[in-house]
Amino acid sequence: MVEYRIDRHSGVATYVQIVQQTKQALRLGLLRPGDKLPTAREVVEATAINPNTVLKAYRELERDGLVEARRGLGTFVRRGLSTAPADSPLRAELDGWAVRARKAGLDHDDVAALFIAVLDTHFADHDQHSQGDPS
């Protein structure tokens, strides 16, 4: 089970926050295939957000094939999100890189900026959940 934290001042649409936090939980293994997501009622009771916002987020997760709604039972995780496990070679390389960056005198924000810049060059087509489409 996950618990959603809604940040009203983040500028990120509320349903997107739920989508992102669910994906994060899938990446971290907090949610695994077969697990049940909280019902819309449980989420809104705890967060005081509109029920349709939760349903919208769940529909988006369903479209992505991550969860499935089973009538009368709830919404369940279909598959996890592939991610490098904590002990993978990729993680070890990144770890080593971070150590070198620190030795080179970069601070936390420098490293984050550098990392995001590189991320953006290699994953430029990644659909960013920004403010939504002002069409």
């Binding site: 009203r8 967060t47 029920p51």
Partner: peptide
Amino acid sequence: GTLMSQAAQHGTTIVMSSHVVAELED
């Protein structure tokens, strides 16, 4: 939260007034 849970569970239509927009936004 209680009001929203009512809406989620029973499909209750809720109309509420306020002059504080931020209070109702979510």
